[in-house]
Nucleic acid binder design. Structure first.
Length: 255
DNA sequence: ATGGCGCATGGAATGCGA
């Protein structure tokens, strides 16, 4: 079973890269973020033609999340329960017996800003719901997406300056998620030095590997022993007109 | 090496991402 996450930064612009990627990689489930389109513009026909079902929650211009799957997604849920939010940042579905939660975590702009407060409130609501609701109900659960948090020094280019994505409150919120009962699947495996998932479009950042690891796949304790591999796929970041994020791919042993 | 790119909106210039 292969589960992946990819912030495509506009599904409209990246559709053909996405279809190529599906055709090459054949994931069982793919979490997408930053669709940047309304549901009525979601390219459902093209995705169906590629052999995939889709559950999606989009809006104009910003945000938007989806879960693509090779079998019909079950029990689709939109948004964080009991957290009023105009921004479409969370969708969950069950695929082949695995509960999959796909999140586009707020960026936060800068510590002290209103957007930063929203980021921490969003993280708190997510953590409370996972701990009290989703994890007890679904022992086999995966939380995947663009977390907009680089959890450790290892996840940040040594010359990265600035607070956002790496600040103590953001990292504390990430640890709180882990403490609910999740494992960072990427760190279960040996990885290349300086492994990142996002590189700024500017200043030749990708060429210099000046990046951050902010896209993650967390698995519940019950799934730990099923993890077989987890890696960043840098290939799409090398294409013409790429997303600034690369996909992260998890392989689970089939039951 | 982060004002410097790319995307969306709207039809130029601005907001936003990370």
């Amino acid at each position: 079973m292969k589960i992946a996450t990819w912030n495509v930064n506009s599904l409209k612009v990246r559709l053909h890269q996405l279809l190529d990627w599906l055709n090459t990689n054949h994931p069982d489930a793919l979490c997408l973020q930053e669709l940047k389109l309304e549901d009525k513009a979601f390219p459902e026909a093209e995705i169906q033609a590629a052999g995939y079902y889709a559950a999606f929650s989009g809006q104009k211009t910003y945000n938007g999340v989806a879960i693509l799957s090779s079998t019909p997604p079950e029990d689709v849920m939109y948004g964080i329960p009991n957290f009023a939010d105009e921004q479409k940042r969370l969708i969950a579905a069950t695929v082949k017996g695995i509960r999959i939660v796909c999140g586009y975590f707020p960026n936060g702009q800068a510590p002290g800003s209103d957007k930063f407060a929203y980021k921490l409130a969003w993280l708190d609501a997510l953590t409370c719901w996972l701990k009290a609701g989703a994890l007890p109900m679904h022992p086999n659960i995966v939380l995947a997406g663009d977390f907009n948090i680089a959890p450790d020094t290892l996840d940040v280019h040594p010359e990265w300056k600035g607070e956002i994505l790496v600040s103590p409150p953001e990292r504390a919120a990430f640890r709180s998620l882990i403490e609910c009962g999740f494992i960072d699947a990427f760190r279960l495996f040996e990885q290349p030095e300086h492994s990142y998932s996002w590189w700024d479009y500017r200043a030749g950042s990708f060429r210099r590997n000046f990046g951050l690891r902010i896209d993650h796949i967390l698995v519940s304790q019950a799934l730990r022993d099923a993890c077989r591999a987890c890696a960043v796929d840098k290939a799409p970041r090398k294409l013409e007109r790429p997303s600034d994020h690369a996909p992260v791919v998890l392989e689970l042993a089939s039951k």
